[in-house]
């Protein structure tokens, strides 16, 4: 079947808040193993787009498919689809009352019904993958931002997602902590994890993405491989946008 080619399909997503059109018919497809990076000025609907994909925000119209199954209008089955679309937030959103390992295992136990012992084992494995196994028994308040974000990545990975959604995973972090988180995400990309990443880290974007999607005013304004976007004169807007960041980086 034609559908099988794509792991995730996003079709004509629209979302408005009152008079403000935040997403204006956004469509794209994702193949298994793709790393798609979304860039663009703030307020252009990047976060809203990611949240519309796993229905944390319900779009006004448009449809989303995961592995050929419709995610939109899926009723309570959305709780299954959300496991399959791991999400990482700018502000981590770790469960404040739980240790790192409890953060990772709680959904395994409560949602998947996994026995506690098995869940613990899997949680520790996921923590190891993000280099946080030594911090398993620490509470979120005892972790640095970079460490907390790595735990939140482990929490999402524990559900064995088909796609990972990263919403500015390093924007709340100091530069030296940004690196350790980007390293983890890069490794995931290298291991073939399918992911959508919203970021302002242009170096990361150009080195890891299969495709960069430049969003502006609720639309995908330009999209292409990093090489295309940087060399092809047709993609002037993306290049200008990236250029601003380059200058900014140099000033830092």
């Amino acid at each position: 079947m034609h559908d099988d080619e794509y792991i995730l399909k996003v079709e004509n997503i629209r979302k408005s808040y009152g008079q403000t059109v935040v997403l204006d018919s956004v469509s794209f497809n994702v193949r298994k193993g793709d790393t798609k990076v979304f860039i663009g000025p703030s307020g252009t609907g990047k976060s809203t787009l990611l949240r519309c994909i796993n229905q944390l925000t319900v779009p006004d119209s448009g449809r989303v498919w995961l592995n050929g199954e419709e995610v939109t209008h899926s009723g309570s089955r959305i709780n299954y689809f959300r496991q399959k679309m791991g999400m990482v937030f700018q502000n981590f959103y770790l469960f404040d009352h739980l240790t790192a390992v409890r953060n990772v295992e709680i959904a395994l136990i409560k949602v998947k019904g996994m026995p506690a012992k098995e869940a613990r084992k899997k949680a520790l494995l996921e923590l190891r993958q993000v280099g946080m196994e030594d911090w398993a028994d620490h509470y979120p308040a005892e972790l640095s931002g970079g460490q907390a974000q790595r735990v939140s990545i482990a929490r999402a990975l524990a559900m064995d997602p088909d796609v990972m959604l990263f919403d500015e995973p390093t924007s709340a972090l100091d530069p030296e902590l940004t690196r350790e988180v980007l390293e983890v995400i890069k490794n995931l990309a290298r291991d073939g994890t399918t992911m959508l990443v919203v970021t302002h880290e242009m170096g990361f974007a150009t080195s890891v993405a299969n495709e960069i999607l430049f969003m502006e005013g609720g639309r995908i304004a330009e999209q292409g491989s990093p090489q295309e976007l940087l060399s092809d004169p047709r993609f002037s807007r993306t290049k200008n946008f990236i250029g601003q960041f380059r200058e900014f980086d140099r000033e830092m």
Partner: peptide
């Protein structure tokens, strides 16, 4: 509000 959002994002129902 992030606590509820994160909980829903790993597949918990509202009740869970």
């Amino acid at each position: 509000e992030g606590q509820m959002i994160a909980a829903r994002s790993v597949g918990m129902s509202r009740f869970q």
